[in-house]
């Protein structure tokens, strides 16, 4: 059998390896983050962000375990629903009454 062995740490363009010889050297991966692995389906509760109430203090952002608080130019822009597991820390820690609240059900 002659096979082309993957002797590199390949930039992954796919997340499946049909054969053993395509496994990158030592199973080493390119560190590119795992935002394409969606954990949004874990959610049984969902945070509701109220843009009008939000002071953009970023408390939710620093405590969010999933990096699911979307920010742009120092302002919160929404929730990354593909990642949010619905833990509710954001709502629990939010200093304002109605800026971040939890709702039952994971579906948006």
């Amino acid at each position: 059998m002659t096979v082309q062995i993957n002797d590199t740490i390949r930039k992954l363009d796919k997340k499946s390896f049909p054969a053993w010889y395509e496994i990158p050297l030592g199973g080493t991966l390119v560190s590119e983050g795992s935002t394409d692995y969606h954990t949004g389906s874990w959610r049984t509760k969902r945070p509701i962000w109220n843009a009008e109430e939000c002071s953009h203090c970023m408390i939710c952002w620093i405590y969010c375990p999933e990096t699911a608080i979307k920010v742009e130019g120092g302002k919160v822009t929404g929730i990354d629903t593909t990642l949010c597991k619905g833990c509710g820390i954001c709502a629990n820690e939010c200093p304002r009454e109605n800026a971040m609240t939890m709702a039952e059900g994971g579906e948006y």
Binding site: Y37, H38, W42
Partner: peptide, 8 residues
């Protein structure tokens, strides 16, 4: 995100 730690 996209890690598999527990919620919270």
């Amino acid at each position: 995100g996209g890690h598999r730690l527990c919620a919270g």
